[in-house]
């Protein structure tokens, strides 16, 4: 499969990245090589092998349903670029009247 500029553009949008022409070029080549590698893997006969979901042959440990104290808001929000009245403040991302 050929990696087109269109596909790169779409991946950029989905990953919220902004690439310059040179980065696009090199990413195109890298992704092409990855796909080529996958094509090689596809030649293996793996019909009777269960898909690997996880590399660790263990099961999910479960946690008892009990609360522990949360972090202080001041501490959590130290990473926040902008906060107001205890809320994270972000650019308005929904048109008026579209609140859901």
């Amino acid at each position: 499969m050929q990696i087109s500029q269109d596909l790169i553009g779409r991946l950029e949008a989905l990953a919220a990245l902004r690439l310059d022409a040179q980065e696009r070029e090199s990413l195109c080549a890298d992704l092409g090589r990855i796909l080529e590698y996958v094509r090689q893997l596809e030649q293996l006969h793996a019909d009777d092998v269960d898909p690997t979901v996880h590399v660790t042959p263990a099961q999910q440990p479960l946690r008892r349903d009990a609360t522990r104290g949360s972090m202080r808001r001041e501490d959590v929000q130290r990473n926040a670029p902008d906060a107001r009245d205890g809320f994270y403040r972000v650019p308005r991302f929904i048109a008026p009247g579209e609140e859901s």
């Binding site: 999910q60 440990p61 479960l62 946690r63 008892r64 349903d65 949360s70 972090m71 808001r73 959590v76 929000q77 990473n79 009245d85 205890g86 809320f87 994270y88």
Partner: peptide, 24 residues
Amino acid sequence: AANTQTCPVCTGMPGVLPVLNEMA
């Protein structure tokens, strides 16, 4: 009150791991 019930796991800090709640 807003943002008083959060921790590194539910705010998505790097390096944290989720542990599944058995009651859920």
